[in-house]
Simulated scan of single mutants.
Amino acid sequence: MPPLVLQERYSVHQNDFAPLIECDDLLRELMAQGGPMPSDYAQMNRTLRLLGDAVRAKVIARDDVLAYAQDVTNRHLEGTMQARALGKKYGYSGDFEIIEAIYTLQIAQEPHLRRWDLYFHSQAAPNAVRNRKAYFHQLLNSHSAGHTKAPLNVLNVASGPARDVREWMLDNPEREVFFDCVDAEIHAVERAKKLCAPFAKRVEFYHRNVLRFLPAKGYELVWSAGLFDYLTDRTFVFLLKALIAVTKRGGEVVVGNFSDYNPSRDYMELLGDWVLQHRTREQLRELALEAGAAADSIEVMWEPEGVNLFLHIRR
């Protein structure tokens, strides 16, 4: 779509539309060469940041940028990770298939799409998603190592494909750890059941909305990695209270949330329509206090990218 068509389509002044025109020029150049090389990543990120600045300054409407992204993606990038996120197959960009594709570094086989997926996976946000799987495994290691007298019960909220559960159990077949996994998407539950089939005696799945239902067994560890940054503050507090209530004394609740430091944010929001509630460490502490957690029971940690924060609450 040449710049002139961009102007006619959205009826904006060329100076106002300059960041989108620059983005369009760069995308055309990169598509002509078969996709971005690693040496192009910095320029791509800079261009998206300038476009994001223009949207935040209300110089360009976000809806116009999304319409442009949808058009370009449909015509040139169908089958890429970006297209899958933008397509929202299950109603939102970060669905269980996207998360599993990030975990397993899925890359399109078509040569003209392959480099775009490599660029997607190089971003800070997908790296943070992969890191949170490792973070969960470390939590399981530490909790199970210190819990030798009885089985360890773990609640996994919005468990998605449960690949993280499967991989940990493969590495720890002898540990007495039992998982209850809850997810509102039936396709995610079905996929997770297949992945965890070898461990069916140790994992129970619930196809339920966690805002309406939680198993009430009592858990030593409650984990939720990718749900809370989709929630408003009010819903965040409501659900966190419920998670604290099903955590045993001496147990721990750990929930993930993308931080306000996210170098991938413009790429996610403008080319993938992947919008999250980014929060600071201080905001997470305040929400935990509002949910009834004691001040000295709260700790906020992060994974190596610094993009995904983890709110820990000890009971």
Rank of each mutant, 00 (worst) to 15 (best):
V182M: 09
N262K: 06
I298R: 09
G218F: 07
V255L: 06
L86N: 02
A83V: 00
S122Q: 12
D266I: 04
H278Q: 10
L195Q: 07
R249A: 15
K89A: 12
N141R: 13
F310Q: 08
L27F: 14
Y68E: 13
V157W: 01
A57F: 07
G256E: 10
W168R: 05
R234Y: 10
A124T: 10
R163A: 06
A145Y: 12
P3H: 01
W116Y: 01
T232S: 14
H121K: 07
L227T: 06
V165T: 12
Q283C: 03
R234F: 10
I313Y: 12
R46L: 09
M44S: 01
Y135F: 14
H121F: 04
G306K: 09
V165P: 00
K194L: 09
T47I: 07
Y261I: 13
S11A: 14
A69D: 08
Y267G: 03
F199M: 04
S264C: 06
F120G: 07
A293C: 08
E29P: 00
D266H: 13
G91Q: 11
E176D: 15
F96D: 00
H312P: 09
K133D: 01
V55K: 08
L26R: 10
P3D: 11
A32N: 05
R191C: 11
S159I: 02
R265C: 09
G251N: 10
L105C: 14
Q43N: 14
V307H: 07
Y92Q: 09
R265G: 02
P3A: 05
G160A: 12
I298C: 07
A162I: 05
E185Q: 13
P111D: 01
L30S: 00
Q14L: 12
A293R: 09
L239M: 05
I107L: 11
F96K: 10
V5G: 01
E305Y: 07
R166M: 05
S144N: 08
P151M: 08
D229P: 09
R166T: 04
N156E: 15
M44Q: 03
A158L: 06
R130L: 06
